[in-house]
Design a protein around this nucleic acid. Structure first.
Lengths: 306, 306
DNA sequence: CCCTCTTACGACTACCGTAACGATA
DNA sequence: TATCGTTACGGTAGTCGTAAGAGGG
């Protein structure tokens, strides 16, 4: 059984009709402006008056003249209807504001963004926005951004010296990869100073590399680091040659388990985090799209990370 | 054939639903607040998103999280919905604000207000307001107003020395009544100075009487005036004894024609007008009612007068 | 099993348009 | 007659509720 009980509330339409009649001075003229029949308009107003319990107009053979009550309602309605129209205007534009393309660079360790699914989901949410994802090394990505062949780049540890507009994305942890035979492997958490005597093979970009150097130097030593741009190679050297590596949270569930002789250990107080950013070319014309993308990535990353 | 072509416009309901979901964080909770089923709510939102061309929420197993676009809409909606609620609140009160009684005194020459019809029309327009009309001499009316047994009095030529709140009503003309044999009867318009040698029988209140004296004295003479409170008696003396009287516009269509030997002549530039006012006891609790009454009387008088 | 949101279907009703009518100048 | 407003009637479409289902924790 339906309980289709409906408290009739004032709707914007009624107010708009009422106001137009005030302005036009007669039902007929108002009905022409409103693109409805004057009969429907008459009924709408009568109903409104009945609901309010008082007349809004004097009916004359010359037209409709608002009563005192009508004049008061008119004054109260004007600002609301104005704001309402403004909002509607803005929303009508919204299709335009959301129409556009973002050529998006994804560097190195962020490949998991490349999974088609995430962009399909974005497309579903924002059918008028097109994301074109490209995978690059971070240097190439920034070069394209500068050249204007990319609109935005997702990059980690970025220290902006190029004047790009940047947005923070959720950070994740960085973890040390060591052989289980390494004494460090027994620890639950690491501090930077624990790394004093280790040798490293690192797959990280320049920004992160410099950060790592600074962190170690603050503890009074310079680490022995070799670098690579090949993740698999890094894991190989760690497991075969006993070097230390660095990975991030998502690797611990994906890659690390494939190397049973390795362990990933977090840093105490997330001392060496993995901050992600979106860098955007500063003359990109649709900031709305970027904001939406940042929001989406933030949401998605948080869902993935936690 | 119906051209039932309707441009679907955003309605306040949709916005309210949207906002409640933002605040409640899930469809189910919001639907309980809104007293509708969560299914209907789901549909309403999906429709809204479709209309706007972009998603307003991320759907999660924990609830609805607004996207960037959703957050923007929320911010834009908040002030409008707040104003809207305020207006609705005011309108809900309106039945209360219009509920009340006015004990209304009508003095002397304003008897035509007493015609039941006009108050029936008022009742039709404002069913929650009750007008109780009483007919008095103007002195008695003001006395009742002072005593609090009347709420308001319609009175002419009133010079307020009692601290009542007064409202102007439409003025009408005052005309001189003379026998057609009187030389003045040949004139189309009169000036005050034309009255220098006449004798008067006047049915006017003290305020108007004093005004008349002042007008004549400004022209350098004092008129020979007898007064009466009986209109018919005035007409009698005018037609039988050749005295001059004063009447107002409405009398010229009602009473004057009954005395074929009389003529009513207006004053040049409406030099001696007939101003009407509404005097209200200053502690009357419902100013809204009074304003509505003033508006109504103004409208009615203008319809009658012009 | 609980919560989340969605889809499908049937029913109610608000609104509109057409037509006819009443009143005023 | 022309212009104003109202009442009556039938059809469309929007919105609701109920029922059923998919998915995550």
């Amino acid at each position: 059984m339906h309980i289709y009980w409906k408290v009739r509330l004032l709707e914007i339409r009624q107010l708009r009709y009422f106001m137009q009649v005030c302005e036009s001075g007669s039902l007929l003229k108002a009905s022409e402006v409103l693109f409805i029949s004057h009969q429907a308009l008459s009924k709408s107003l009568s109903l409104l008056e009945k609901e309010l319990g008082a007349a809004l107009f004097y009916r004359t053979p010359k037209g409709m003249i608002p009563t005192q009550f009508g004049q008061e309602l008119l004054e109260d309605s004007r600002p609301i209807l104005a704001e309402w129209d403004q909002l509607n205007l803005k929303l009508e534009e919204s299709a335009t504001r959301h129409k556009g393309k973002i050529r998006l660079g994804l560097s190195g360790g962020l490949i998991y963004f490349g999974s088609k699914k995430i962009w399909e989901y974005f497309k579903e949410l924002h059918p008028h926005t097109e994301i074109e994802p490209y995978e690059h090394g971070y240097i190439e990505g920034l070069k394209c951004l500068k050249a204007g062949t990319l609109d935005a780049v997702v990059i980690s540890d970025y220290e902006n010296t190029d004047g790009f507009i940047t947005y923070s994305l959720p950070s994740t942890r960085r973890l040390l990869i060591v052989e289980k035979s390494n004494p460090l492997a027994s620890k639950e958490e690491l501090e930077i100073k624990d790394l004093r005597n280790e040798k490293f093979i690192l797959c990280i970009n320049d920004f992160a590399y410099n950060k790592f150097l600074r962190l170690c130097q603050a503890e009074g030593f310079t680490p022995d680091v070799r670098r690579t741009s090949d993740t698999v190679y890094m894991y190989k050297l760690c497991s075969e040659d006993g070097l230390c590596g660095l990975c991030i949270d998502s690797n611990t569930s994906n890659l690390v388990p494939k190397y049973p002789e390795l362990r990933a250990i977090p840093f105490k107080d997330n001392a060496f985090p993995y901050p992600m950013m979106l860098a955007v070319r500063n003359n990109y014309p649709k900031p709305t799209l970027i904001k939406e993308l940042v929001d989406f990535l933030t949401y998605s990353l948080n869902s993935v990370l936690y």
